[in-house]
Every structure is written in C-alpha cells, then in structure tokens.
Design a protein around this nucleic acid. Structure first.
Lengths: 336, 336
DNA sequence: CTGAAAGCGCTTACAG
DNA sequence: CTGAAAGCGCTTACAG
C-alpha cells in the first residue's frame, strides 16, 4: 500500500508537480491552467484515490488547520456541550479541534498549552486557570490567535466571550426576592476567578439594594475535592443556618452537591427552600422537584468565539479585540 | 520568533545535525557518542529552549504518536468517562488522542475514519456503527492497528473489548425475579447492534428459564429522535401494560427518558415498579429514589483497549487477536 | 565516534 | 500557460 503522492499524479497525468499542486488546491484557474489540464489532473487524482498529506503540507506552510480547545473539564456537561458546538462550527470551515481538560490544575494548563503549541495548532480557545495570564501573553507575542471563553483576565488585551454572569445572578436573586424570600444564601467556590466573582457580585448587589445582604450566608466550597466532601460541607452550613429560605448555587456541580445535601437534611423544595443553580444539567430537569436554573447561552458563546478566532487567524496584524458578554436565560421550574 | 531547529543546536554546539538528532532522541549512547558531546548538546538544546517539530518527524518516520478514538457520543457520560481514561493512559505512554463522535450516523463514521487516516493516526479505537465492518477491514488491510470497544462484529478478526452485556442483564433480571417481580419489561433501542442484542438476550433467557417471558413486554425506542419522543413512546407503552411491575432499561438515555415517563404517569418507584438501568449516570444517583444500575467497568475497558492497541502498534505482523469481555457491576439502590 | 547527504510530500517564488 | 528547484525540520543508511 504505497502512498499516492502528487508526484504519482503528475507522472500519470503527464504534467508537472506544480501543476498538480495548483489544481488540487483549487488554484488552477488563478494560475491560468487550461481547463483541459485541470480536468485531467482531477480525474487522475480521483482514479488513484489521492489523499493529500496534511503533514507534508503543514511542514511546508506552517499551518495545520487545527485549533486547540482547552476547557476546565470535558466530562462536565456545560463544557461538553460547548465543545460539541465549537467542533461543529470548526468543521464547517474545515478545521479540526483538539480538546483537553485542565481539571483546574495550573501546572497542567501550562503543559496543555505547550503541547498544543508543539502540535502546531493555528489558534487557541481557552478557559484559563488563574495563573494562565502570562502564558496567554506569550501566545500573543508568538502571534498565536487566542480567544478566552467563560472566564478571562479583566485587564488583558485579549478577546473573550462569556456569559453576562453578573446580570444572570442579579436577575435570579431579584426573582427570589420578589417571591418573598428574605434569607437568601449563595454557594460559590474558592477559585476567585472573575466569572465566579461576578456571579457572587450580582447576588450581593441585588440583596444590598433591598438592605438584606448578610455576609454569613455565603458558603465557599473547594473545587479540588470529591463530591462527598462538598455535600458534607453544604449540610453543615445549612444546619448552622436554619433561617435560610432560598439558595443560589453558582455552578452546576455545587448545585448537584446541594441537592444531595438537602435530601439528607430532608428539606422540602421549594417549601423549605427555593433553589436556583447556574448551568443547566440533565439532572436538574429530572430531579423531583425540577430545579430552576440560569442557563448559559452555550451556542452563542461557541459561535462567537470561533468567529473571533477566525478573524485573528485570517488577519493577525489588524483585528479588533472584542470582549463579548452574552445574556443567560433564567429557566423557572418547580424549585422556586 | 524564528523556530529553533536541530540545525541551530548543531551550529551552536559545533557538532553535526545527525549527532544532535541522535542525542535528542536518546540514542546517543547507542550511537557511541561521547558523554561530553551528549552533555553539551543537551545543554545547548535546553538553553535555546528547543522543541522538536512533531510534524517534521512525522513526515520523515510516518508515525505521529497519536491514536484516533471514535465514540458514539462524547457528551454521553459513559463515553466521556471512557475517553477520559483512555486519554490519561495514552498520555502515560506519550501518545495523543483525537476524539470524535459518530452520533450513530453511518456516513459520519466513515468520514471520521477517513479524516483520522488523513491525520495519520497510528492506531484506532472505535465504537463502530452498523455499517462499519468493511471500513474496519480496510484499516486492517492498510496495516492500521484497530481495537473495537463497547460493540463489535461477531465474526470479524479484530480485537475488541466490551462489557459482558449478556451476563449483566441476565444477573439483573434474575435479581428482579428473586425480588418477586413477575411482569418484567425491557426497553431497548432499534439499533440491532450486538451489544444491545446481548443485553436483551440476557433478559430474555433469564425470564425463559422461569417460564415467564412475554414478548409483548419489550419496547424498542428510536435512538435518532429527541428525548420527548422517547418519553412519549415510553408513556404510551406503560399505559398499555399496567401489569408491568419491573423494568430494565438497556442504556442510560433510555433510563433517563423512562424516569421522566414514570413521573408523568405518577408511578411510585419501587412500589409500583422496580427499575434498573444500564450505565451509571449522575442523575441516577441523584434521583428520588436513587436508581439501581448495571455499571460498566469503564476503567478496565479503557486500559485493556489501550494495551491491545499498543501490542498491535509495536508488532503488527505478529500480535494475537483478543476478544475481551469484562464483567459489569450491579449497583443496588433504592429503586428495587 | 562523527558528518554529509538523501528523502518524507508538499508549496511557491521564479524563470521561461 | 507550465516546469525545475528550493526548502519546511526532521531521521537514518552510509561512509569514513
């Protein structure tokens, strides 16, 4: 099974290698190659079942028609959905996507960037970890197109696409207040990343406007631990705060842990406590009762990020940095 | 930012290009290069922050140190978990994994194989669609290592790793019978793929042994449809069969649809109906009541498949075809 | 012990 | 309108 190359085609079609290359790449007309020759080359290529070597072409051009997608955790539904849409979009423009998960591990994130760099991807879409600002600056300096998604660094000159997190939790909190809830808690993680801070801020501001903010009603969970530990922490927090009558979970895995905590505590939802979580998830639709969520505009985020990346890839010297916030959707279910 | 190549190192270290290449690839000793030279080359490489071009080396050697992983749907937890373990295992032996989903679309599966072939992956791990037998034969003919997972073609000479599906559902059904259930239904899809047939067969045999098999208690759902349609089909089936007192769902997405159907029907689990589903899933642990499952040995499947693939990759002319079945685990929760 | 050179399969500037 | 040739960054058989 010897590989068919443009040389084989050239010989068989009795033209030069360059002519074959031009025709294969659709530059036949531009190069003023006669229609007859174009047709002949195409026929021969077809007959020999020619497949271009991406590797050889990459080595020559320095381009791979691939993009690297670094997410926090591909087994989290939110990121899986995001990846799926990004992959589909990329496929439409004939790009391949390499995905990988950081697990919110800072060293691993670094490694992943390096390894994608080594694989020579043409551009990056990244949900950064906390330490990654410098690495991203380095990519920019290397003229590598980058778009950040879901989270970002406030003062960095890099395009990003994220949900309007502040607005999402502000609106959800206001909704709970309008329902008559007075003692509203929030569960955040300890990451301190901007998207989480903004979610908390939306909650905080909404309560402060009503003069009912209480800093003791904020629980911080550790991302880097197992689910049981999160459940236990949630249980003991709520045991200490029996007055709480509503809660906002700032990410789906915290919501999932919270629901298990409430089951242990035998809380009735929404009678004892109203529940809203960030990020929609199968389990929220299936839970008894069904759980209200602030759903992310996954499709919009994916499409916009590919657009921004493409604009950098086609024209690195003169593109505009865009910082895009897409509105989420409050989906009301039985839990409120 | 010019790229650093072995040529730069050769010049700086004042040795030949070949010497650099040998040292970089750890063949210095074998080539009897003096320790002093080895050390010098390594130091220079380090200082210049040299990164080998995978692309150039691939072009030269024909190897890419990558494997293609084709699953049915990466956003399904079972496949996501499988992919995660496979990726970790591959990383340990310094291989990269490209994953993609067929969506059980036969044309797309073909395309994916072609596109991975074009990317020159060194080996394939595939959950095949129904039509893929010929394509896989072609890979074998091209001397491309292949391992099938989750499903396979009974008479094909290709290694595979799957769960012992027959045993899994046989044991689960026997368990339901021992619990005193008499009218046990099963929900399958229409794919007709071997793993689904075996799951159904385990159920059928267990019931036939007791003389209580009834072919009217088998429901077939369509994979290629939306969840609501599956829920509706499940509801109408159970409405027509009020005598059913237990059910086995043969894949997690059917189980998830089933639970929503039961909620609509206001069935009490397990009082009205005992429930066991294939494939564990977050939602099953979180459901009220928690749902019993036949969990797949995901880690074992992943590890074994990489092992089999590696044995083919290192020695294609003389490896043994292995057909491996790993036992699943019946996890009993509140639903039975 | 080390080096010069061919070649993997392409693309593209240059010449005619 | 078409072809000869250089070169992308490696690896490795061969020569000395």
């Amino acid at each position: 099974m010897k590989r068919i190359t443009i040389k084989d085609i050239a010989i068989k079609a009795e033209v030069s290698i360059s002519t074959v290359s031009f025709v294969i790449n659709g530059k036949g007309e531009k190069m003023a190659i006669s229609p007859a020759v174009i047709k002949k080359v195409q026929e021969v290529a077809q007959k020999l079942d020619y497949r271009p070597s991406m590797i050889a072409s990459s080595l020559r051009t320095g381009k791979t028609r691939s993009i690297g997608l670094i997410v926090e955790d591909i087994s989290n539904q939110f990121f899986a959905d995001l990846a799926r849409v990004i992959e589909d979009e990329a496929k439409n423009i004939d790009y391949r996507v390499f995905y990988c998960s950081t697990g919110d591990d800072e060293a691993r994130s670094e490694e992943l960037v390096q390894s994608l760099l080594q694989a020579n991807v043409d551009g990056f879409i990244i949900t950064p970890t906390k330490n990654l600002e410098k690495t991203i600056d380095m990519l920019i300096k290397m003229y590598k197109p980058v778009v950040l998604i879901d989270r970002y660094f406030a003062n960095q000159k890099v395009s990003h696409v994220a949900m309007d997190n502040y607005d999402g939790s502000y609106e959800a909190t206001k909704f709970l207040i309008r329902q008559g809830r007075k003692n509203i808690a929030v569960v955040n993680n300890k990451s301190g990343m901007i998207q989480m801070k903004l979610r908390e801020k939306g909650y905080t501001e909404a309560l402060k406007e009503e003069g009912i903010y209480d800093k003791d009603r904020v629980l911080y969970l550790d991302y880097h631990t197992n689910e049981q530990t999160r459940i236990d922490a949630t249980i003991s927090f709520f045991k200490n705060h029996p007055e709480i009558d509503a809660v906002l979970f700032l990410a789906n895995y915290m919501g999932l842990a919270g629901l298990q905590a409430f089951r242990k505590l035998e809380y009735k939802i929404p009678e004892d406590i109203s529940v809203i979580s960030f990020d929609d998830h199968d389990s929220f639709k299936l839970h008894t009762p069904t759980i209200s969520v602030i759903a992310q505009p996954i499709e919009n985020i994916a499409i916009k990020s590919i657009q921004l990346l493409m604009s950098q890839m086609t024209n690195f010297s003169d593109f505009t940095i865009e910082k895009v916030l897409q509105k989420g959707t409050l989906i009301l279910r039985e839990s409120v």
